[in-house]
Each structure stands twice: as C-alpha cells, then as structure tokens.
C-alpha cells in the first residue's frame, strides 16, 4: 500500500474518510432537524495537505470571498475545525436555516449568528461523532466567524505553515439549493500522529466487529 506525504496508508485514509463520513452524516441529521428539509452532506474525498497547499486548493477553486466558521477542539487530538463557504453560499445557508421570507437586510443582520449556529451543529456533530467512533472525547470551544481568502483563513500569512490540514470537500445539498462548502481541520503533527493511532484502533475494531 502506498503512503501519502504524511504517511497515511490507503487503508488509514479510507478509514479516515469513513470516520468523517459518519461524522458528517450525523451533522446532516442534526441540520435536517434544524432546517426541516432534506439535507444531504457527502464527502467525496479527504486529503491531508500543508496549510499552504490548503490555501491554494481553496484559492484556485473559489475566486469569491469566503466565510468561515471555526471551532477549536481539545482532547485526544487537538486543533481547529473550519467550515468554509463562499460568502454567497453562506447567505444561502442562512436563508435555508432562518427562513426564506427574510429580507436581504435581515439575512445580513442574522448572518453571523445563524452561520455560527449552523457551523456549530455541523462541526460539533461531526467532531463529536468522530471522537465517539474513536472512543475518545473532545471538548469544543465556542464557534467564531472569520472572513477572507485562502491564505488568510489558513493562516499562511502568519507564517504558521508547518502544521497540516485535513481537507475535505463537502457537497451540501440543502432542499435543492446549490450550496457547497469545505471542511478543514487544522492540526499539528503530534495531533495528527495521535489521530492516526486512534484510526488504527478503529480499523482493528471495525474489521474485528465484522468477523465476530
């Protein structure tokens, strides 16, 4: 099995994708309850890249300004989770959450609050579920909102280019709205290493369970 840059085997990567898939499914279920319409989140791929590469990935896909909901997490592994939307998509999501009848002014007024709330549901649901699957616990900080382009979001301007980014491209399908977003987890190397060990345990458990 080949290994990628930071040494995840294909199996580990698959397992990781499944973990995120479980987490995102949970988040989607929560969001579904909140919005009251069909919400489907799916994760086509997971990549582990440098912050710089992540900034580029975002940069070359999204020319428009971005809006980010971020939450820090601590526990068996620590880092910062980011939910990233093109700003327009963010508004669309706010409208989906808060109601179609809102005027643009109202959307603007509610935007940060609604995004923070929605982001919290998605990030929290996702991370908590993952932690649960890994049989660990995480504590999450309160969500924050940030705006800017790729380099700003991933802090490459600050020179903290060393840490790695677990980068996910998520398709949001919210009652036929064209909303797309990205989920990213910023983690340093020791954290990723711990995460990898946990993933190995998860793999052993997953395969063992089925054999049992």
């Amino acid at each position: 099995m080949s290994q990628d840059a930071i040494g995840l085997t294909e199996l580990q990567q698959d397992a990781f994708t499944e973990l995120v898939n479980i987490g995102v499914s949970r988040a989607a279920a929560s969001l579904r309850t909140m919005i009251g319409t069909q919400v489907l989140l799916s994760v086509p791929s997971v990549e582990i890249v440098s912050r710089k590469a992540a900034a580029r990935l975002i940069g070359e896909r999204e020319a428009a300004p971005l809006v980010v909901v971020h939450q820090d997490f601590e526990g068996a592994f620590a880092g910062r989770a980011l939910l990233i939307f093109p700003q327009e998509n963010g508004r669309e999501l706010v409208r989906a959450v808060a109601g179609e009848e809102l005027s643009p002014d109202e959307v603007a007024a509610l935007e940060d609050e609604a995004l923070a709330e929605t982001g919290n549901i998605i990030l929290n649901g996702c991370l908590a579920t993952m932690a649960n699957m890994l049989q660990r616990t995480l504590t999450m900080s309160l969500p924050g909102i940030q705006r800017g382009d790729g380099p700003r979001i991933f802090g490459t301007e600050a020179g903290d280019a060393d840490s790695l980014v677990l980068f996910l491209y998520i398709d949001f399908s919210v009652s036929e709205r064209d909303i797309r977003g990205y989920l990213a987890m910023l983690m340093d190397l020791p954290s990723l290493e711990s995460l990898r060990a946990l993933v190995d345990e998860f793999i052993a458990r997953a395969l063992g369970d089925l054999d049992a």
Binding site: E18, I22, S25, A29, M133, A206, L207
Partner: peptide
C-alpha cells in the same frame, strides 16, 4: 475487501451514505 469492510463499518457506525 478491507476497504469495503471499513465502509460498511462506517454505515454500521452511523454514516448515511455508502458509495
């Protein structure tokens, strides 16, 4: 097989979509 088993374990663990 391993890959598929992992994916199935994801479903059994609460994932919604299998593809």
């Amino acid at each position: 097989r391993m890959r598929v088993r992992l994916a199935v374990s994801g479903i059994l663990g609460g994932a919604e979509v299998f593809d």
